[in-house]
Write a protein that binds this DNA or RNA. Structure first.
Lengths: 252, 252
DNA sequence: ACCTGAACACCGTTCAAGT
DNA sequence: ACCTGAACACCGTTCAAGT
């Protein structure tokens, strides 16, 4: 019998680590988080299971690697968004729109970051990978914290509840995350959700919440629908085009 | 060799179905959703795998059965909450507090309902079980819809955004769900979340949001902290005692 | 030293064999 | 007709054997 064994070959470890994450990402994108299998990852790779396990101590560790990639993409979007040329509330809206775009365009990555938050995953992953993920998450949140702190200083955010920037940032994140998690495409769409479109409700929730914390100008004094259109065309035309390719149009 | 085969025995199918769900529930409570295994369920049961599969076509179907139990508990809590003797915004607060209590007291059930919303589960479960689950979810949401519709009629909810009751109900649900999902006990608690307590932020978010949709009286005109205390002592003293048993105190 | 893949334990699901 | 549990396919993880 002819041996079909793969020939041993040394590759730069950093490059290989990236190859492994990329292979996992392909499976994630085409089959979803639940179908992500070490067997399938290895099948896409020019190396063996043992080698994959040298880079990632377990499946959960690999998921952390994917989550890091997700956060890196999101950080780039947030940074682009926060630079929008408008008032501070419009910049907050820009960040939120970038989060929605990310959730639609990379819904597999969005799912992977959710998965990471569950004990089954974070209890198994290595301390090193967990620390790295936390660093990235902090970097992401810092963008929002800074915008909020500045807005409070400039009296654009009246903050009637006297919450600190971290608390306000969390209120916004909870709302946005919850909306996408309950109305997103990967969620069971039962009768109770009929008539609700994630992008429209997301926009509504954003207005309600920013009014609720007293972020000026309030809805009644500003046309945020127009701001949203401006943000999308000025900052995210490329992403909107990609979303449009799947036959979907973002309307507010 | 002595045969250790279980002796065949007929049992009322309805009772057995409940026994199976209860066995699954025990595992869920002690080991979490991810550790729920058909093997473990069968081990707790006086019947075989084949019989379990006669009642539930697959693991996901069984999860739907658990989810139904979860919704039934939640519906009972909502009904108790909405009967609170106070203004309509206080009744909304009561419902939200009951949701938080449910998430803390039955966090395993909370997790199971989340799991059901993912495609891996709802795509595999039987149509019959899905329909039943949807019916229960509608029953749950109807409680909130009705309260909102009445509040709008009575001009207690000024609804400056002109959203329909379903949309408002979804805004509230998104916020509450998102807050628990991001700050709950089963979530990775990294540095960015330090200093945030789910019950305190949950209460803050609730106030911000209800102010945002103009549900009267606004925070500045009413002490909702006192309302919360009244609601908990009048309606949920039993649940609060159970939570206290695990060394936890709900403070607002 | 580094890499491979057979082997093991575990899990969901099926179905031939029992009563 | 109803129930059982061995058997199968699949998956995460390990490690003895190869180079």
């Amino acid at each position: 019998m002819i041996s079909l064994k793969k020939v041993k070959q040394k590759i730069c470890p950093v490059a290989r680590k990236e190859m492994i994450v990329d292979a996992a990402l392909e499976i994630l994108a085409s089959q979803g988080v639940a179908s992500l299998t070490m067997d399938k990852v290895v099948a896409k790779l020019p190396c063996s299971k043992g080698t994959v396990y040298k880079h990632f101590s377990c499946k959960e560790d690999l998921l952390m690697g994917i989550g890091d990639k997700a956060l890196t993409i999101l950080i780039a979007l947030f940074n682009r968004a926060v630079a929008f040329n408008g008032n501070s509330r419009e910049r907050a809206l820009a960040i939120h729109l970038s989060y929605l775009i990310y959730a639609i365009l990379h819904h597999d990555l969005f799912q992977s970051v959710i998965a990471i938050k569950s004990p089954t995953v974070y209890n198994k992953a290595s301390a090193e990978k967990l620390a790295k993920h936390e660093r990235l998450e902090n970097k992401l949140m810092a963008i929002m914290h800074k915008l909020i702190a500045t807005a409070i200083e400039n009296k654009e955010l009246t903050n009637i509840n006297k919450l600190n920037p971290q608390q306000i940032s969390f209120a916004l994140w909870s709302m946005n995350f919850g909306t996408i998690a309950l109305l997103g495409e990967d969620v069971m769409q039962c009768e109770g959700r009929r008539g609700l479109e994630v992008e429209r409700e997301y926009f509504n929730h954003n207005n309600i919440l920013l009014d609720g914390i007293g972020w000026l100008p309030l809805q009644k004094d500003h046309d945020y629908r127009q701001s949203a259109r401006k943000i999308l065309s000025q900052l995210f035309s490329q992403e909107i085009a990609l979303i449009a390719q799947s036959g979907r149009v973002l309307v507010f």
